[in-house]
């Protein structure tokens, strides 16, 4: 019975892996196909689509644009998120629950709804669609993730660490900068990577709040409308490799950093 269960579970697991990865593998394969039409059979292979991508000024500048948005929105999220996390973790004041709920809410609102809301609000405030508006929307959406990750880390900081710093002559600000902040570094780094990936990957907010320049997902969408081509597969593969590499590195880094300081 137990043995049967185990076989069933492992089959289910591998079925799940196939389900997730087969489309990705197909997408990557088609990027190397020496033909304009996507589909089997693949008679010959080529790197032309890739050289095309790296020669295409529009694609490259879009990459840069998306990365710039990701970096700037991440900085904003991390500063605001860490600030809120410290405030929430340190004390339980009246209205704590409400404040925590409101903080986490942006992560739960469906993307399309928050995108439309942002669009209306941006027009009301007179903010032009474009880079600033996208950064703003991404930052707001990502703050909750920073808050949750940083709060979790902060809750494991022994109270005696701060007391020791105070005891040795540090005022509250110095104690925060020299003891709390270094302790939070792994969490802040982890949260940053997550924010970078969320922003880089976002379509809905970027689409609704974007100006004339498209971000990468918006560009891919635009290209799709004019027909499927292995060029898109090549762009997507580059993005996939880049984000996966950063994600895996960050995961390993934060795990090691957590181990070191505990």
């Amino acid at each position: 019975m137990i043995r049967g269960n185990r076989i069933f579970l492992s089959c289910a697991y591998w079925a799940f892996v196939l389900y997730v990865f087969v489309p990705l593998i197909l997408m990557v394969m088609m990027g190397f196909k020496d033909s304009k039409f996507i589909g089997f059979p693949i008679r010959s292979w080529t790197l032309d689509w890739y050289s095309g991508v790296f020669a295409d000024a529009e694609v490259l500048s879009t990459f840069g644009y998306s990365i710039a948005i990701a970096v700037l929105s991440t900085i904003a999220s991390v500063v605001v998120g860490t600030w809120i996390a410290v405030l929430l973790e340190r004390s339980r004041f009246k209205g704590w629950g409400v404040m925590f709920g409101l903080t986490v809410l942006p992560a739960l609102v469906p993307g399309i709804i928050s995108a439309i809301a942002f669009r209306i609000y941006a027009r009301y405030l007179g903010i032009e669609p474009g880079m600033g508006a996208i950064i703003w929307a991404h930052a707001v959406h990502n703050v909750p993730f920073v808050v949750l990750v940083v709060m979790a880390r902060l809750s494991t900081l022994p109270k005696s660490q701060i007391e020791a710093a105070r005891d040795l002559g540090a005022d509250p600000l110095v104690a925060f900068l020299r003891i709390t902040l270094p302790y939070l570094v792994p969490a802040i780094l982890g949260a940053s990577i997550f924010c970078l990936l969320l922003s880089f990957d976002d379509f809905v907010r970027s689409f609704f709040l974007g100006g004339y320049d498209p971000t990468l997902p918006v560009l891919i969408f635009a290209k799709l409308k004019s027909g499927m081509s292995p060029e898109i597969n090549a762009i997507a593969t580059v993005a996939l490799v880049l984000t996966a590499a950063i994600g895996i590195w960050a995961e390993r880094f934060t795990r090691r950093a957590n181990k070191d300081t505990n």
Binding site: P158, S160, Q161, E163, A164, A165, D167, L168, I179, P182, Y183, D260, T261, N262
Partner: peptide
């Protein structure tokens, strides 16, 4: 002008 040795020592790990 008082210093303390904490029960868990509270040494700064970094």
């Amino acid at each position: 002008h008082v210093n303390m040795v904490f029960q868990d020592y509270a040494l700064f790990p970094h």
